[in-house]
Design a protein around this nucleic acid. Sequence first.
DNA 1: AATGGGACCTGCGCGC
DNA 2: TGCGCGCAGGTCCCAT
Length: 266
Amino acid sequence: MPELPEVETIKRELEKAVLGKKILGVIINNPCVVKHRRKEDFVNGLKNTTIRNILRRGKLLIIELSNGKSLAVHFKMTGQLVYPGDGKKSRVSFKLSGGRTLDFNDRRLLGELRLVDDWRSLEFVKALGPEPFDLTADKFKEAVSARKTKIKPLLMDQGFISGIGNIYAAEALFKAKINPERSAAGLSDKEKTVLFKTIKDILNEAIRCGGSSIDQYVQLSGEPGDYAKQHKVYGRAGKACFICKSPVKRITLGGRGTYFCPKCQK
DNA sequence: AATGGGACCTGCGCGC
DNA sequence: TGCGCGCAGGTCCCAT
């Protein structure tokens, strides 16, 4: 599911819906997603704690609890958090005060739930690059110039910049009119400036729309996000480019399907 | 350093 | 209708 805008959407909705609620119980329907050898450590550490704070780092959601621990949630490809949940597709359900349940659904079971003492010391977190909104244009341009790799895989490199995934890398490069196979270091000063601004614009607009629902992603309420309607190239192989009407192309880059308009993106 | 492949998983849509 | 294949918002690990 989720790139930065989808996780940010969930984060904001969780703040409204579950902040201050107590976790009364935890039901593990599929232990695969709980990354603890002893599942009872996970359950016992969560039980009877209160949800104090919700944060996001890159694509990672962090729920801080009253006992000082945090629940780190990585959605990977098909993870969902739904509240109030109905339990039907739930891999793990959290029974909250007030009588409702927060469901973690995950069709492909690639998602990860971890209860940790200090989320900042997670290796995954320490390896994350800066948030797009914390970065200055100058820093972005300098970092891009230092890398010879192709620009699209670089944008998706979470150690380089955190939160951008396959959809938003494709959409940002389309809007910035940059071919995804271009060398990062080979971009002009102007292109780097435009790309940086475009990334932030697209992420902001996607957040405003509640994210992109393609297959599995839904907002906390279970409603789809609206931004997929605005996709210009992602998932549009063979269809006419909205600008020049020539067909959108799909190639594989860094092992990922990559959509772009060969005519508009030079 | 960069790139390619496979692994982890389930399940959808497509062509035959 | 049924089957096999490719593909999927991510990340990690290994080989070259």
